[in-house]
C-alpha cells in the first residue's frame, strides 16, 4: 500500500542498480578475468516534473547509469521502476512501447545528428518509427517542434552542417520531444557548447520542462550548471552515489567529503573570492574501477580518512533529516570542522 503511494509520486525509482562489464582475456578462448563495476548498487528516485542532477567526474559511472536506466544496457542486477513498471524485466515489444516515454539528449550535437538527413527527417524519424500519425500530421508536428525549440519551421529541409552548435542541440531537443516523452535523460547537454550559447540552451530546457511537465535526469560534471537546473542532486563516485539531497541542502551543507572537495574545486569567476578561497585539493586520481579500493571507495583520496574507512564500507544512510543521504563514517565532521583531519 505504502509502496504504491510512493510509486505514484515517483516517475522513476531506481533500486540497487548494478551494471558490471566483464573484462576478458584471450582472443579465441575468451575467459572473464574480472568485472568493471561501472554502476554498483545505486538507488534513487525522481518525482514527476522534477530534475535530478547527477554529478561526478569522468569514470564515475554517471553516463553508464543513464544508459542502463533507459535500457541501452541490460542491468546486471537491481530494479528500475518507470511509472510503476520494472524496466529491468521488460523485453521485446513491451520495452519498445515503454521506450517512447523516455528519450535521451547527448553531449555532442555534431555526433548525434546524422549529417545525411535533413533536420525535418531527423526530428520526424521517431514519429515514423512509432507511427504516431499520417505523413501530413507528422510534418505539421515537426514544424511545431521546431518552433517550440526556438527555430524557424522553414529550416526543415536544411542539413545539420548548416547549423551552429547551439542550434544543433536545439534540434536534438526537438527530436527528443517528438514522442511526448515523460522522462528525458540529458547526458552533458551543454558541455560541448560555447559559453555564450550554454545559457540559451539551459533556459530552453527549463522552459520546456514547465511547458510539457517533463522529468529530467540531468547528467553533468559541472556543479554550477547542476545547481542551476536541478531540484535534487546525486553525487557519484566510482559507481556509487555517495551523497543525495535536495539542491540547496547539498550545496549549503554537504555531508560527504567528496562533495565538499568538488564544491571547493569549482572555479568562481571573481578574482576577489578566488584569492580568499580555501581549496580542498584532493591528492591523486580516481582509482581504477577494475581494482576497487577496499572499505570506503573514496578513502584513497579523502583528507579525513581514518583506519575504519580502509576496512568498512560506510552505509548510504539518511543524515540531517530523512531526505539527505550520504555514505560516510564521519559525515557530522564534514559540514562542521575543517577538512584537514
Amino acid at each position: 500500500m505504502v509502496d504504491t503511494l510512493v510509486a505514484s509520486k515517483l516517475l522513476l525509482d531506481v533500486r540497487d542498480l548494478q551494471m558490471y562489464f566483464p573484462v576478458t582475456k584471450g582472443i579465441v578462448l575468451q575467459r572473464t578475468v574480472g568485472h568493471v563495476q561501472a554502476v554498483d548498487g545505486v538507488s534513487f528516485g525522481i518525482e514527476r516534473g522534477k530534475t535530478l542532477g547527477l554529478v561526478g567526474e569522468s569514470g564515475s559511472g554517471k553516463t553508464t547509469l543513464g544508459r542502463t536506466i533507459i535500457r541501452l544496457y541490460k542491468p546486471t542486477a537491481g530494479q528500475v521502476f518507470f511509472d510503476g513498471q520494472d524496466l529491468a524485466q521488460v523485453q521485446g515489444a513491451a520495452l519498445w512501447r515503454i521506450r517512447q516515454q523516455m528519450q535521451m539528449i547527448f553531449q555532442d550535437p555534431f555526433a548525434s545528428l546524422n549529417p545525411r538527413f535533413t533536420i525535418g527527417t531527423l526530428i520526424a524519424e521517431p514519429m515514423h518509427i512509432y507511427k504516431t500519425g499520417m505523413a501530413q500530421e507528422i510534418r505539421s508536428r515537426t514544424e511545431e517542434l521546431l518552433r517550440v525549440v526556438g527555430l524557424r519551421s522553414e529550416y526543415m529541409d536544411r542539413y545539420p552542417h548548416e547549423f551552429s552548435g547551439g542550434q544543433r542541440q536545439r534540434i536534438a531537443i526537438a527530436r527528443a520531444l517528438s514522442l511526448n516523452p515523460q522522462l528525458i535523460i540529458a547526458d552533458e547537454p551543454v558541455s560541448a557548447l560555447d559559453v555564450s550559447v550554454r545559457a540559451q540552451v539551459l533556459n530552453l530546457l527549463q522552459q520546456l520542462q514547465r511547458q510539457f511537465h517533463l522529468t529530467y535526469l540531468f547528467v553533468s560534471h559541472d556543479l554550477s550548471v547542476v545547481r542551476h537546473v536541478a531540484d535534487r542532486v546525486a553525487v557519484m563516485y566510482l559507481g556509487k552515489i555517495v551523497e543525495l539531497a535536495d539542491r540547496d541542502e547539498l550545496y549549503l551543507a554537504p555531508q560527504h567529503p567528496y562533495t565538499k572537495a568538488l564544491l571547493s574545486a569549482v572555479p568562481i569567476p571573481d578574482p576577489q573570492i578566488e584569492k580568499k578561497r580555501q581549496r580542498i585539493i584532493l591528492s591523486g586520481d580516481l582509482p581504477s574501477p577494475f581494482h576497487m579500493p577496499r572499505g570506503c571507495r573514496f578513502h584513497t583520496r579523502c583528507p579525513m580518512a581514518q583506519s575504519i574507512c580502509r576496512e568498512i564500507e560506510p552505509a548510504f544512510e539518511a543524515k540531517m533529516g530523512h531526505e539527505h543521504f550520504a555514505a560516510c563514517h564521519f559525515s557530522e565532521q564534514v559540514s562542521g570542522a575543517a577538512p584537514q583531519a
Partner: peptide, 25 residues
C-alpha cells in the same frame, strides 16, 4: 559583460533564468 552574466555561479543566489547572449558566434 554578457559572458560574465550568462554563467551560473556557485557563489551567487540561484537565478530562475540565466541572462543570455542571443545568436551565435
Amino acid at each position: 559583460l554578457g559572458l560574465l552574466s550568462s554563467v551560473p555561479r556557485l557563489d551567487e543566489a540561484r537565478r530562475n533564468e540565466l541572462d543570455t547572449i542571443d545568436g551565435s558566434p
